[in-house]
Design a protein around this nucleic acid. Structure first.
Lengths: 239, 239
DNA sequence: CGTCCTATTGATGCCACTCAAAAACCGTGG
DNA sequence: CCACGGTTTTTGAGTGGCATCAATAGGACG
């Protein structure tokens, strides 16, 4: 059930058979949620974290006027709100962007791991710092990249992240987002995203149609975006 | 020496006398660094983390054209690159914005804590997730807030963070940043920061002059910024 | 008291936003 | 299988916030 989480972890460090068992034992229950459902609400006391098994989720914050900023996208295998374990509540909401399947992990089981399994604890800690690294890269995009570079960058990032969990076909992957969703990730309007996607399509770099991304020229796209997957820490090391 | 770190931690959870001793024992050495010195460089293997004792530091990423995005500011008491312990290297640079004093903490001592002191481990973990929360709030600023709200917001944030470590005088605090530095935090140009600061000054909300911030109307500033310190998790809880 | 850095102001331009509307797509039910 | 309503995508025209370019003023320091 948590195969994708294991893929994600094993791309970064060894996970022993015992540790794998413990991780499997974390899941107390699974749940299906419909699209557009807010699964975790900001400021609510939490005692459970969620692993995304299938679908696509996001973390977002919003302003009074209804404008929304998505601060991170989550692909299957992501421990979507693991940080709620040390934080005890969240400063943002977590929403399903499409129908999703999630696994529920009670915090007391995570607590138990921290008491008895240091290496696994460090692995979990690592995963939350990986999310922070993604936040930082998005800050760079939001603050300094042009609209075309922003879109190019997020499409490169998602290619890498989907690839890790075996959800790409070559340079193509399914991305069930609307242009409106994308705009909320990138600090743009949907209209401008639309125009910029057309540019990227016309320059034969990437096509995003029918919820599918086809990267026609990865090197070119990465160059435009100044994309370097370093910040995703896809290298195996003892943590 | 690490009094400000202790203030920061004890604003969020209890720290026992034993834990305090262990934290004090983390420091292997201290160092003075000059302004504008990059203390930690991206992609370099690390075996030491730094606690900021005095001064002001930042994390930043940059683009080929030399544009820079500061992703977080660090005030005294911050464990500036604690996340390099799980990550093993950083995806960004860490720089001293003014002359700073830092404490060096070897990773093997952190490793030892994770092996023997679960609660302290969770506290350290918590601190890295707090940095991530700040990143998310900055994403919201960079993506959706207007220039005036962005400036107002960061000045509110810094007030709260300086206050926690006892470095405010009422609604005033010393902030040794140039307008150029601020611009690099906010995804703006220094020129526009200058104009916007004038607006904020003229609307009697806040003054930033001679490296000093004086908030004349905190409620008004917070309202403009939609500032809510929730994301800084200044509430004491068992972690 | 000159030099460098920082702050300030003015003029102009462009990237992305807003407003408006049509076209394409999609699930649903008759 | 097609009509239908809602969502999403696409395109056009006009606007504006922040950037760029240019230049002066102020402050810190040797």
């Amino acid at each position: 059930m948590i195969e994708k989480l294991l893929l994600k972890l094993r791309a970064r460090d060894d996970v022993s058979a015992e540790e794998e068992d413990i991780l499997r034992g974390l899941v107390a229950d699974t749940k299906e949620v419909a699209a557009d459902v807010t699964v975790v609400r900001a400021q609510v006391d939490l005692s459970v974290s969620n692993i995304l098994l299938a679908g696509l989720m996001c973390r977002y914050k919003d302003l009074y006027n209804g404008e929304r900023q998505i601060t991170e996208l989550h692909v299957p295998g992501d421990f979507v709100d693991l940080h709620s374990f040390p934080l005890k509540r969240l400063d943002h909401n977590v929403m399903a962007l499409v129908p999703c399947k999630i696994a529920l992990v009670p915090h007391d089981r995570l607590h138990a791991i921290t008491e008895t399994h240091p290496h696994l604890t460090r692995l979990l800690w690592f995963m939350t710092t990986l999310d922070a690294a993604i936040h930082r890269e998005w800050e760079l995009s939001l603050g300094r990249r042009t609209s075309s570079a922003r879109i190019a960058h997020v499409l490169c990032e998602l290619h890498t992240r989907f690839q890790i969990v075996g959800m790409t076909q070559g340079y193509s992957y399914r991305l069930p987002l609307t242009q409106f969703d994308l705009a909320e990730c990138l600090g743009l309007t949907a209209i401008h995203v639309n125009r910029t996607l057309r540019e990227l399509r016309m320059s034969r770099l990437v096509t995003f149609r029918n919820k599918t991304v086809v990267i026609e020229n990865f090197a070119g796209l990465a160059k435009l975006a100044e994309y370097d997957s370093d910040y995703l820490y896809v290298d195996k090391r003892p943590r």
